[in-house]
């Protein structure tokens, strides 16, 4: 009884646990698994990422030119990072950024 009274009084003066989010940013941890980003200049077109992606979020569309076109659907991606781990040029051609996916 006394214990809980002391606790509730100390809670009155304690720092708020809530983050006032839309007005204040939430600090993210390092290596947060966010959006997958791609650079066409570095890509060697081995299509490994397309092969390993479980939900087929990465697709190389055939075009008239020599190289195919990279297409990525963030609404299909499950953010497992398997494509990045299989990429032979990790961090240059394909990397996992810390950006949030966009809300439509």
């Amino acid at each position: 009884m006394i214990k809980s009274i002391i606790e509730s009084f100390s809670n009155l003066f304690a720092k708020s646990e809530t983050i006032n989010y839309p007005y204040e940013q939430i600090a993210k941890f390092k290596n947060y698994r966010g959006l997958i980003e791609y650079s066409a200049d570095e890509c060697i077109f081995c299509y490994k990422c397309e092969k390993v992606c479980p939900p087929d979020a990465i697709v190389f569309k055939p075009t008239k030119e020599k190289n195919r076109l990279y297409e990525y659907n963030p609404n299909l991606c499950i953010y497992c990072g398997e494509c990045v781990r299989n990429c032979p040029k990790e961090d240059l051609a394909l990397w996992q950024s810390e950006k949030k996916p966009k809300i439509i």
Partner: peptide, 28 residues
């Protein structure tokens, strides 16, 4: 969109096949 469960036999690939959706929040 259906995500990993896309094209499984008991799944309809996302709720926008049935009701209109205003906001799509990605992430898994």
């Amino acid at each position: 969109t259906g995500g990993v469960f896309k094209d499984m036999y008991n799944v309809n690939n996302g709720i926008d096949s049935l009701i209109p959706v205003d906001v799509y929040v990605p992430g898994c």
